[in-house]
Amino acid sequence: MQIKLNGESTEIPEKTTISQLLTQLQFTPDRVAVERNLEVAPRESYNTTELGEGDQIEIVHFIGGGAR
């Protein structure tokens, strides 16, 4: 099925959980945050939340930034 991952259309297997997606992408869950369809996905839900067709997923982290 297709999801939008950080703005890019991406093909992933049906019933992929957030945990599985992060593992597949090789990101450590405690270093990122995940948003699903504009709602923050709580960490506790990563193992149980299965992604659906057309989901908009954002994976973010902290980068250097400031008062500019």
Binding site: L5, N6, G7, E8, L25, Q26, F27, V32, A33, E58, I59, V60, H61, F62, I63, G64, G65, G66, A67
Partner: peptide
């Protein structure tokens, strides 16, 4: 105290 920004990860470069 340090300010930080929140941005997309680079999906193609996880390391």
């Amino acid at each position: 105290i340090v300010t930080v920004a929140v941005r997309r990860v680079n999906v193609s470069d996880p390391k």
